[in-house]
Amino acid sequence: MRESRLVSRLQERDEAAFREMVRTYGQRVYNLVFRMLGNREEAEDLAQEVFVTVFKSIDGFRGDSKLSTWIYRIAVNHCKNRHKYLARRMVHARAPLDAADRDAAGRDGGPTMALQAQISQPDKLLEGLQLEEALQREIAALDEEQRLLIVLRDVQGLSYQEIASITALPEGTVKSRLHRARMTLKDRLQKFM
């Protein structure tokens, strides 16, 4: 369905359009939120909140940006607020991305299979998994803004233009801060490579 058509159906409170929208953007939003919060339960709750907000404010969507950009913006705002909230509640003190979260995320099932396909030797596989784990951990250890930029650009592959629009940062700033974040990750992952 074309985006403008989907938007106008959403604005008419069309349930089928709503389901299609959540199906289309749900995975991306959930992945972003999960990487930002590092906790599966929080992420599921927050991802749901994102779509509640999307629906509550769809009338205000004027098509100045892509629908996905607008949804991302809402998701990022929710993440920021939740971070503040969690910081206040000190719930955030626990290590993000603990083993239970990763198991729940199916890390030992489906996604690993893709990795196995890429890496044939068993010790290479182990190396790959260790690197992946280290990567998850180091992403979670970045500061909030760096993590956001890394996830949007390097994990999810958004364009600089989109990221600038989502974060309300100039493109140049996005690039320089992202570069900082990449260098930090590189240094912290050095021993795994």
């Binding site: 995975q27 959930y30 199916g106 489906g110 992946e132 992403i139 994990v155 590189k186 992952l189 050095q190």
Partner: peptide, 16 residues
């Protein structure tokens, strides 16, 4: 190492 970092990030499996 920088390249490898970028490649690993791009290969992170999506979480269903």
């Amino acid at each position: 190492a920088f390249r490898q970092t970028l490649r690993s990030l791009a290969q992170l499996p999506p979480i269903p």
